[in-house]
Design a protein around this nucleic acid. Structure first.
Lengths: 117, 117
DNA sequence: TTACTTGTAACCTAATGGGTTACGCATGTC
DNA sequence: GACATGCGTAACCCATTAGGTTACAAGTAA
């Protein structure tokens, strides 16, 4: 369940450390190559912007990776942020285990169940 | 590389089909339980709203799942949408394989590399 | 009929992605 | 020293979107 992991690396850091630096590509060049403004890429690299699906696709093509890689990095980052920022979600009460587990079995085998799952 | 998969199921459909229906929980009840407005949940269920990180955390608690489950469903959905909507990202030219592969090795072993990776 | 459930429109606020232009700073080059 | 590059970022604009409240019409069940 390891919900207590360290802060995930921001996708922008990966771009910088694993690609731009090793390949000696400037932010300006990369932005041009991706077809986005320098500002957009700069924001991401400085961890002030997020990887959008569109950007994930662009990065995937440019860097020969799956778009999912970038989506996942962003997803993990966002989730960690939300988890540690607002605590409001912790007030949510789990549905009772009886409902969640017992009933699922019941309904699944119950001929009265019309839902057609 | 299977980039040609079918349209992913929207998270809202999962909520409805796998939870609300089997458990006989109404949208109104669930919204209350999650601590969000009925509108917010309704939009998601009718595939007109997205799972935000905050919502993923709420669903995780309420339904005894990982938040990642919901984040992943949304991520796959978003990526598929972006992939099939705008085609602009396809114009992005991959960095040359020489840069992407050869150079990575070079720089990694090159004493001149100052980046300290 | 009456009550409950639901989708959704209308309206408002706050946040966010993306673009352009421009400025100041650091670094490298001639 | 003078000039060019690269970069972060501010200022400003636009479009979209999450989320909330209120309200209405329609469907369903008691």
């Amino acid at each position: 369940m390891n919900r207590i992991k360290r802060k995930p690396t921001h996708p922008g850091k990966i771009i910088m450390e694993d690609y731009l630096k090793p390949l000696s590509i400037t932010v300006t060049e990369m932005a041009l190559s991706l077809g986005v403004s320098r500002k957009t890429l700069s924001k991401i690299i400085n961890e002030r912007g997020a990887i959008t699906p569109d950007m994930a696709l662009r990065l995937g093509r440019a860097l020969d990776t799956t778009p999912d890689l970038w989506m996942n990095l962003q997803k993990n980052y966002d989730l960690w942020q939300a988890e540690h920022m607002s605590k409001d979600w912790q007030k949510v009460k789990p549905l009772s285990p009886e409902q969640l587990h017992a009933n699922i079995q019941e309904t699944a085998n119950n001929p009265m169940n019309q839902s057609g799952l």
